[in-house]
Each structure stands twice: as structure tokens, then as C-alpha cells.
Simulated assay, not measured.
Amino acid sequence: MANIKSAMKRIKVIKKKTARNRMVKSQLKTAIKKFEEALTVGNFEDAKAKLKFVEKKLMQAAAKNVIHKSKASRKVSRLATKLNKAV
């Protein structure tokens, strides 16, 4: 455990940021699963709407540095490709 006041503060700040990052990543995974579920069922209109939502969430996460912007773009690209192949 840290003895210096600034180090103790950093530990608190890091805990908060870690919790937020974990929450955002969990939301992303859930949104992606819902998109893929809609694809497997064959509900393409719903899948398109969910893809738009996933893209928005990925870009927001990239903007907040939860994930890298290239990773967000790559995910969107791959999901869009999946949708296009299914249709």
C-alpha cells in the first residue's frame, strides 16, 4: 500500500477509471452479442439498427480511450462485413 498522499489518490482514481472501463467494455460486448443474435435469427432490419448502435458505442469508447480508435474501426468494419454477407 502507498504511503504518499498523491500515490494514494492515484490508486483511488485508477480504481474509478478501471470500473468505468470495465462497465463500458461490458456494454460493448452485450451490444455486439445482440447484433450477432439478430443476424443468426435472420432479422436484417433489426441487425442494421443494432449495427448502428454498436458503431456509436464503439466510437464513444474510442473517444474516451477505453479502446483504441483503430480497434473500434476494425470492429465496425468486420461487423458490417458480416451483415453484408448475411444479406
Rank of each mutant, 00 (worst) to 15 (best):
residue 82 K to D: 11
residue 41 V to R: 01
residue 72 A to K: 01
residue 33 K to C: 06
residue 27 Q to N: 12
residue 5 K to Y: 09
residue 65 N to L: 06
residue 86 A to T: 09
residue 33 K to Y: 13
residue 34 K to P: 03
residue 67 I to R: 02
residue 78 R to A: 14
residue 11 I to P: 00
residue 32 I to C: 03
residue 50 K to E: 03
residue 21 N to R: 01
residue 48 K to V: 06
residue 68 H to C: 04
residue 32 I to V: 14
residue 48 K to Y: 09
residue 35 F to A: 08
residue 43 N to S: 11
residue 16 K to S: 14
residue 26 S to L: 03
residue 53 F to D: 11
residue 44 F to M: 08
residue 13 V to P: 03
residue 75 K to I: 14
residue 52 K to N: 10
residue 64 K to P: 00
residue 22 R to E: 15
residue 10 R to D: 15
residue 66 V to F: 10
residue 66 V to P: 05
residue 81 T to W: 03
residue 9 K to T: 15
residue 47 A to T: 06
residue 43 N to V: 04
residue 25 K to A: 11
residue 60 Q to E: 13
residue 80 A to T: 09
residue 18 T to W: 00
residue 43 N to D: 13
residue 59 M to F: 12
residue 86 A to K: 07
residue 18 T to V: 08
residue 30 T to L: 04
residue 49 A to C: 01
residue 15 K to I: 13
residue 36 E to K: 04
residue 22 R to F: 14
residue 73 S to C: 00
residue 74 R to G: 01
residue 72 A to S: 12
residue 54 V to H: 05
residue 9 K to Q: 14
residue 8 M to P: 01
residue 9 K to Y: 13
residue 61 A to H: 03
residue 72 A to N: 02
residue 9 K to C: 10
residue 60 Q to N: 10
residue 47 A to M: 02
residue 57 K to L: 13
residue 6 S to R: 00
residue 77 S to D: 06
residue 30 T to W: 00
residue 70 S to P: 00
residue 23 M to F: 13
residue 16 K to I: 15
residue 27 Q to P: 03
residue 39 L to H: 07
residue 79 L to P: 01
residue 86 A to H: 04
residue 11 I to S: 09
residue 29 K to R: 12
residue 73 S to V: 01
residue 22 R to T: 15
residue 87 V to D: 08
residue 26 S to M: 05
residue 11 I to M: 06
residue 79 L to M: 05
residue 80 A to R: 03
residue 15 K to M: 05
residue 19 A to M: 01
residue 87 V to Y: 03
residue 20 R to K: 07
residue 43 N to I: 02
residue 38 A to N: 04
residue 1 M to S: 15
residue 27 Q to Y: 12
residue 83 L to N: 06
residue 67 I to G: 09
residue 38 A to Y: 05
residue 81 T to K: 03
residue 76 V to K: 07
residue 45 E to L: 04
residue 49 A to E: 05
residue 39 L to Y: 07
residue 7 A to T: 11
residue 25 K to G: 10
residue 78 R to L: 14
residue 25 K to T: 14
residue 20 R to V: 13
residue 59 M to K: 06
residue 85 K to I: 14
residue 13 V to E: 14
residue 7 A to W: 02
residue 41 V to G: 05
residue 77 S to A: 07
residue 64 K to I: 10
residue 46 D to Q: 02
residue 4 I to T: 09
residue 47 A to E: 01
residue 13 V to A: 07
residue 26 S to F: 04
residue 67 I to M: 06
residue 84 N to A: 13
residue 34 K to H: 10
residue 75 K to Y: 15
residue 85 K to H: 12
residue 11 I to F: 05
residue 16 K to E: 15
residue 17 K to F: 10
residue 32 I to Y: 05
residue 69 K to R: 08
residue 58 L to N: 07
residue 30 T to E: 09
residue 72 A to R: 00
residue 29 K to L: 13
residue 54 V to Q: 02
residue 58 L to D: 04
residue 12 K to L: 10
residue 83 L to S: 08
residue 45 E to R: 02
residue 2 A to H: 00
residue 83 L to M: 08
residue 78 R to P: 01
residue 56 K to H: 13
residue 52 K to S: 10
residue 13 V to G: 04
residue 55 E to W: 03
residue 30 T to Q: 02
residue 50 K to A: 03
residue 20 R to C: 04
residue 3 N to D: 09
residue 30 T to F: 01
residue 86 A to D: 08
residue 12 K to C: 08
residue 21 N to E: 09
residue 3 N to A: 14
residue 15 K to H: 11
residue 29 K to Y: 13
